[in-house]
């Protein structure tokens, strides 16, 4: 599903070179649930951005679902994100002027290749799946944090992505709500969904099928 080979990503800050990713080799198989851990500055977010096709490697190869991502231009990367990826962010990133339903449908609006006459139907189903079937016309500010994150998960699922990328999905939630979100992600995983999640909390990472530890832009440990 995902294959990284010798991926490097360096940032130049002043005359300093920050090796955010320094020769990453990684394989993620279909249906895996991977947790990426590491201290802040270890490169885990850069890795997630790379996997999310928001960034491209300076060197190395990145294959996502059979596509050579490193060779794509900006429009093609957008299309890959639109078709193959689903994002869940720490701060939810819902659009405040839109209803729950519209937020979930949003990615399909940018699928220029295919019309989606059933977009609303699908969004409705997904919201029911995350137990928000009775909140379709609510605006994000009328929802609790946990509910917002569930909307975000539904949005990530609307395009039936190859991989869900979650960046500290429970970072802004209390432990009770966190558990509920992790339960949701775990059930998705159980249904065969590939997930890559960045977290720095051990108990959250414990839900994953595999944990990857990063330090200074390198993968230093891959446990179970």
């Amino acid at each position: 599903m995902i294959r990284l080979k010798g991926v490097q990503r360096h940032f130049h800050i002043g005359d300093q070179v920050v090796r955010a990713l320094d020769g990453i080799d990684l394989r993620v198989s279909r249906g895996e649930f991977i947790a990426v851990m590491g201290r802040s500055g270890s490169g885990k977010t850069t890795l997630l951005n790379m996997l999310g096709c928001m960034d491209q490697p300076d060197q190395g190869e990145y294959w996502l679902d059979g596509v050579d991502v490193a060779s794509l231009d900006d429009d093609a990367l957008s299309a890959v994100r639109n078709h193959k990826l689903g994002f869940v962010f720490q701060s939810f990133h819902l659009l405040s002027r839109m209803t729950t339903l519209e937020n979930v449908m949003l990615p399909l609006q940018y699928d220029h290749a295919n019309p989606h006459p059933d977009a609303e139907e699908r969004a409705r189903e997904l919201l029911e799946r995350v137990d928000l079937g009775d909140r379709l016309q609510h605006k994000p500010n009328e929802l609790s944090g946990g509910q917002r994150q569930r909307v975000a998960v539904a949005r990530a699922l609307i395009n039936q992505p190859a991989v869900i990328l979650a960046d500290e999905p429970t970072g802004n939630l209390d432990s009770h709500t966190s558990a509920a979100i992790m339960e949701l992600l775990t059930s998705l995983h159980a249904g065969g969904q590939t997930i890559v999640m960045v977290t720095h909390e051990d108990d959250i990472a414990a839900n994953a099928s595999r944990v990857i530890e990063m330090l200074d832009g390198k993968i230093i440990g891959a446990g179970n």
């Binding site: 900006d74 299309a79 639109n82 994002f87 659009l95 699928d111």
Partner: peptide, 16 residues
């Protein structure tokens, strides 16, 4: 700006 970032993440092109 955050909204623009999100739209780009879900697949909006620069042109969009």
């Amino acid at each position: 700006t955050p909204e623009i970032g999100l739209l780009r993440a879900v697949g909006a092109r620069k042109k969009d």
